[in-house]
């Protein structure tokens, strides 16, 4: 039993790092523009499908398809940004409905292009097992992308805290007009945050494709997970995203081990509601979300 729990915690940590990759993109855009991009999960999936096509048609290793996937996903996210920027009134709620619509479009477009079949990476290396400390099992892909998750979250945190661009971004997030007066172009920083969110989505997509399976209808579920983590983290906390993601990963993983895999999603949802309703600023956040 102890072994099972240890394995469960370890798997939870690995999923957590991967969840953090998905969630950070959503949280970044939310932090800058107060827009929840409900198409974010679909963008992750889009990256995964580009990688699938590159492997299937061109025989490219999934990692080698990264540049191509980046171009497609970031371009798609620029379109999302452009459409959101057209909204004049009531942006908080209208952008929610707009990006929900974009999610429906992307899901169905992927269904048309790639059909409803389930795919996963065929390059065997990614699925090869690694045994750590004689007892803990992981796929190589899981380790690679958990590592990538931690590194990228760290990089984004460093970028927001320590660089001029990051400061500009945070200035826009807290006060758009004041940022303008300081010579920061809010549009530019918003575009930047969408580009970085696209990058994070692409890497998450590769992780999804190599370590798990892909199917067009999964996008919505990914968005919901990302939003749950954003809520757990609280607005404006990058380390919070990593911690929230790990918390979700571990809770899900323990639920599967102790109870049943059918209850995995339930655990996440209940955690989400409890934090949302009882902790006004998330576990690690600064801003409130009541009004």
């Amino acid at each position: 039993m102890i072994d099972l729990i240890a394995q469960s915690l370890f798997s939870g940590l690995l999923s957590g790092a991967y969840y953090a990759l998905i969630a950070l993109g959503l949280a970044l855009v939310f932090g800058t523009m107060r827009v929840i991009n409900l198409a974010h999960g679909e963008l992750v999936l889009l990256g995964a499908y580009v990688s699938y096509t590159a492997e299937e048609r061109l025989g490219l290793d999934p990692l080698a398809s990264l540049p191509l996937a980046l171009m497609v996903v970031i371009a798609a996210n620029m379109v999302v940004y452009y459409l959101i920027s057209l909204i004049k009134k009531d942006r908080e709620l209208n952008s929610l409905i707009l990006t929900f619509g974009i999610g429906v479009i992307l899901t169905n477009a992927m269904l048309m292009i790639w059909s409803a079949d389930i795919h996963s990476a065929t390059t065997p290396w990614y699925h090869d097992a690694v045994i750590l400390f004689d007892t803990l099992f992981a796929m190589q892909a899981e380790l690679v992308f958990a590592g990538a998750g931690v590194v990228l979250v760290g990089a984004v945190w460093w970028w927001l805290e320590k660089t001029w661009y990051g400061r500009a971004l945070r200035a826009v997030a807290s006060n758009r007009d004041a940022a303008k007066l300081m010579g920061v172009d809010p549009r530019l920083t918003e575009i930047l945050s969408f580009a970085v969110a696209g990058l994070l989505a692409t890497v998450s997509g590769l992780a999804l494709y190599t370590a798990k399976v892909i199917q067009p209808s999964l996008g919505h579920n990914l968005t919901v997970k990302a939003f749950i983590i954003t809520v757990l983290a609280g607005i404006g906390s990058v380390p919070g995203v990593l911690l929230g993601a790990v918390l979700l990963g571990v809770v899900e993983s323990l639920t599967v081990t102790i109870a049943s895999s059918a209850l995995q999603e339930l655990a996440g949802m209940v955690l989400f509601l409890v934090v949302l309703l009882l902790m006004p600023s998330g576990l690690f956040g600064r801003a409130k979300r009541r009004g």
């Binding site: 929840i36 908080e92 709620l93 929610l96 919901v224 939003f227 749950i228 809520v231 059918a262 209850l263 999603e265 339930l266 949802m269 209940v270 989400f272 509601l273 949302l276 309703l277 979300r289 009541r290 009004g291």
Partner: peptide
């Protein structure tokens, strides 16, 4: 109803979470 205290987007997605919970309960 506890979700009524939440602002727009949070309310919208909290209700979604309830729908998921109800679905899983109906399955279980």
């Amino acid at each position: 109803m506890p979700a009524l205290r939440l602002r727009g987007p949070y309310f919208a997605l909290a209700i979604l979470a309830y729908a998921e919970i109800f679905r899983i309960l109906a399955t279980e």
